[in-house]
Design a binder for these strands. Structure first.
Lengths: 147, 147
DNA sequence: CTTTGTGCAAATTCTTTGCACCAAA
DNA sequence: TTTGGTGCAAAGAATTTGCACAAAG
């Protein structure tokens, strides 16, 4: 398990330090598109000497080596994704969750644009997620009476 | 001209102050997806008392009233667009320019996602623009000799 | 022993907030 | 004369930088 993850990093030219493994583990175990702070807070107890700087450094390295994606759907913080296959991101304006939206193939456009060289296309969708949309529908169907 | 712009703001529930008109003018005259600072720097000479706070306030108002778009393709700064019809944005990693990419219709997906309510979809593309791609091709074709 | 990684503290940058003054309805 | 707009200065938050020490090849 740990060996597998180690190999994964090495394969992408990343020396597998304790911190880097822990951060990669976190990304691959939690598909929540975490912020730097979320990662730091989660891992900190296990690696008490960990610093935010290292988390920043590591994520920057991961992105440059192509094992993580930088997601800019949240205006406040940078978010990161260890799942690197093509998919869109949906951000719910009520609960704030960021949900993966699979691309069915037809949407994988813009790999070529006359004369331009496309590296990467990101699709960000904003609105209400299923749960929040449902709650809204319910609260509208049975409005709270105001006296 | 000024009357037209005034009417445009009023139509969208925005009181047309000098500052707001100037900022909307700037957005509609420069399709460069400017940052707050770029707008501030450009307009400041004509309105010497202008503050960055007002630019922030105004852009937030514009976005909430639907006359401007918030663009998060640039990791460093918020960028804004006065052109509100659907199009994608391309950011060149060399020159940094942000270029509009028209959507041919087929790409205007994600207006409905089973159960979710979609407000807005943004498509951000990164790579090399035509000019920078050309320059790169040329420099590779005629490499500088090193002695 | 030389290169690379980590982590602290300070600095920087972008954005927001609180508040007083000004302007328009 | 009340509501809304502007702008200064300060605060806040996220990220970067400089540097010294630690670890690994």
């Amino acid at each position: 398990m740990t060996e597998l993850r180690k190999k994964y990093l090495v394969k992408h030219g990343i020396r597998p330090s304790l911190q880097r493994m822990a951060i990669m583990d976190y990304l691959l175990d939690h598909h929540t598109h975490p912020t730097v702070d979320e990662i730091y807070t989660a891992i900190s107890p296990r690696i008490p000497t960990l610093s935010r700087t290292t988390v920043y450094n590591t994520l920057k390295l991961f992105v440059s080596q192509g094992v993580a994606l930088y997601i800019s759907i949240d205006d406040r913080n940078a978010r990161f994704d260890g799942v690197i296959d093509k998919h869109a991101h949906f951000r719910c304006k009520d609960c704030g969750r960021i949900i993966d939206i699979p691309l069915s193939g037809r949407e994988e456009l813009f790999t070529e644009l006359q004369g331009m060289i496309v590296d990467y296309t990101s699709i960000n969708i904003k609105g209400l997620c299923k749960l929040c949309a449902k709650q809204k529908r319910l609260s509208q169907a049975q409005p709270i009476l105001k006296y």
